[in-house]
Design a binder for these strands. Structure first.
Lengths: 142, 142
DNA sequence: GGGGAATATTAGCCAGACTAAGTTAGTTGG
DNA sequence: CCAACTAACTTAGTCTGGCTAATATTCCCC
């Protein structure tokens, strides 16, 4: 029999695959893709610069450029400039972008709430307790 | 203030996004992509048919066809036929495919173990307790 | 003011997802 | 028993989303 950390890692690995599928279903059919939704979410509290967005979403700058291009074409975000540094482009939500973000968030939360409603109180408590741990896992700088 | 289930759903949503990034890092640089690894894993216990694989991975058949084509080109899987029904194609691991699967699994588990090692015993216990709940979440038939 | 660093974009590639359409093989009912 | 339907796959075409390499621009510093 294996040592405990390895077994736990295997179980986590299995569950992670499961959750990816859950997440996929959660966003299926929404008017924005899961990536677009994530980017809109980053803009909720004001304009951000391209490098910030790329870092936050763990993608290369050119990838973010393309995503922002699409969102701009769709009228959901607008590019601006930083008066202090002409190299940087800022990105912010348009009114329509904010509306869309909130609508998708509502749908998404509703879907997840439904899944959570199928659990017992104990299960929900167990899950809630584990969330900070999971968040810590993901943000480990390795 | 919002009701509790909604808040929990929001937190779960946030953590899920986080975990997707973790998972991405876990397979980065491996000799197979995360999808290919997942498909190889489905073949571990014997041949499967295309429809089974597509369903299991929640993708359309054509998507699976393309993936299997690539794995076949790479020599990791082999297509076969069902003697009882000439319409179905079976897919199974080659020796090389099995080797690759095990190697990637080891690397992946090692990576996750490292993340888990950074946690306290309590945190690991909390996480372990929540895994069955998370698995239940993901498999909810909605 | 010239050279290197920082910020972004463009271009070109590949994986992975989808739908629509085509092929081949089984199934069924008149 | 054969014609029509259904099932299992594959092919073709399109889209998103990721990457690297190359190119502008602008800033900063010596």
């Amino acid at each position: 029999m294996r040592d405990d950390p390895t077994r736990l890692a295997e179980q986590v690995s299995t569950v992670l695959r499961h959750l990816v599928l859950l997440l996929r279903r959660t966003v299926a059919g929404q008017p924005v893709t899961s990536q677009q939704y994530a980017v809109l979410g980053s803009l909720e509290h004001g304009p951000r610069r391209m490098t910030e967005l790329a870092e936050e979403h763990a993608v290369q700058l050119p990838t973010m450029t393309v995503q922002i291009n699409r969102l701009e074409d769709a009228g959901l975000v607008a590019r601006g400039s930083d008066p202090a540094d002409a190299r940087v482009r800022t990105v912010e939500l348009t009114g329509e972008g904010r509306d869309r973000l909130l609508a998708v968030r509502r749908a998404r939360i509703a879907h997840l709430s439904q899944e959570l409603a199928a659990l017992t109180d104990d299960e929900r408590a167990t899950l809630a307790a584990a969330l900070p741990v999971l968040a810590k896992l993901g943000s480990n700088p390795r």
